[in-house]
Structures are given as C-alpha cells and as structure tokens.
Amino acid sequence: MTRLTLSVVLAVMMAAGCGSSPRQGADTVTVLAAASLTAAFDDMKTQFEKSHPGVTVKITYDGSAVLAQQIINGASADVFASADQATMSKVVAAGLTDSVPQVFARNRLEIVVWPTNPKNVVRLADLARPGVVVVTCAESVPCGAAIKKIEQSSRIAVHPVSQETAVTGVLSKVETGEADAGVVYVTDVNSAGGRVLGIPFPEADMAVNDYPIAVLKNTRRSTAAAQFVDFVQGVFGRQALDRVGFQTP
C-alpha cells in the first residue's frame, strides 16, 4: 500500500516536472518577454507563425528581472526580450547571450489619472502639489527607476504614498480611486483601456526605456530564433509595437 502510494506520488511528480520544463520540439521557438510586451508579442506570434509555416512560438511573460533570473538559473529558452538595458546586461554578463542585444522598442512614461481627472493634473509639477495622492513604481522596478531619473533631472520632487512593486499596482490604485495620479508607461495606459486617462509630459524624454532583444546562448533553434528577432524588428513587428504605444527606432 505504502509502496504503491509512494510510486504514484513519484510518478505524478515526475510527470508534472516533465510538463513544466519547456520542451523544445523541432519547430518551437521559446521566447521570454517582459510583461509589458504581452499585447504586441501575442500579435507578432500569430503573424510570425503564419509567415513561417511549421514554426511555433511559445512566449512566457513576466517581469524582466524574474525572467533574467530564470535564464541565469538555467531555464532553457531561445530568445529574451527585456524591458530595460540593465536587466539584459546581467544576462550578457553571465555570458548567456548568443547575439548582441538590439534595441527594438522604446517606452515613455505617462501620468495616469482617473478618467475624469478630478484633481486636474496636466503636468509633472502637479504631482508635487499638496493634496494630490500619487503612487509610483519602486525604484527597483524599471518604471520606478525611470521616474527617479526624471525627478533628479527635472528637480521636481514627487512624493508618492506608495512605491508599487509592479505597474499593475499603480494602475489598480488609480482605477479604484485610492490614488489621484500615478506614473506608468504609455503601453500600460493603453493596455488599461478606458479605465484610466494617460497624460503625456515632456520630462518623460529624460528617461526613455530601451527594450533590448537577444538570442540566447544555449538555443538549439538558432535559425528560427534569429528569424523571430528579425521579425520583431521588421515592419510587422514595428506596427504591432506601434499599436500598443511603443516607439520604434
């Protein structure tokens, strides 16, 4: 009885283990991409698979830092698209890239408010006004690092009540009305649909985020991986990125 239970447990665990490790079939490209790329990359996947019959693209979205950790810890993947250069550098430093990372998209910050903008926020300086409850990203997250940089350059001190560890945290606090304003990327404003209003501000130029992409070292599908990286930087890719608010080089 005990032996039986044990073998069943082991079998289940092994099956689960096998299932979770990305199996690289003959024609599958595994892509690890920053969460902010979800809409654009989903779009590209469909088009790429159409134009490259027999190739399947499998994309995992998560925070860039988390993905970089997974790569460094041995996750097998073919392509990595990061939301910032710093994170990509760690993977490069670990000697795990096969190509020189190339910037394929840029993202700018926008102020985000409740659709009716009750506190009448129109410029960055309004965020420093007393009585305006602001949330930003924590400095350890790319959108937080960017606002920090802008604050230093513009000498406008924003005093957030919370430094969220994810963009979704900033958005949800603005959506629920707990915060009057937040600062996130244009692409995040777009993905939130009409639930929030994005307000561009000129100081955002001071900290534009570059998105690099690279083929990873241990890929077994180097041709297909390189094709996908090219595709992202091509016409279709740029259109897809454009639609969700990215700037393309």
Partner: peptide, 18 residues
C-alpha cells in the same frame, strides 16, 4: 501599498528587491 518606513514591511521589501 508599499512605502519605505510607512507600509513597507519585510515581505514587501523582499518582494520588491527580488
């Protein structure tokens, strides 16, 4: 929320640092 000294407890800091 998450703000150092006010609402950032150890687990929040750990998550943020991660």
């Amino acid at each position: 929320g998450n703000f150092p000294g006010t609402t950032q407890t150890l687990p929040l800091l750990a998550y943020q640092l991660a």
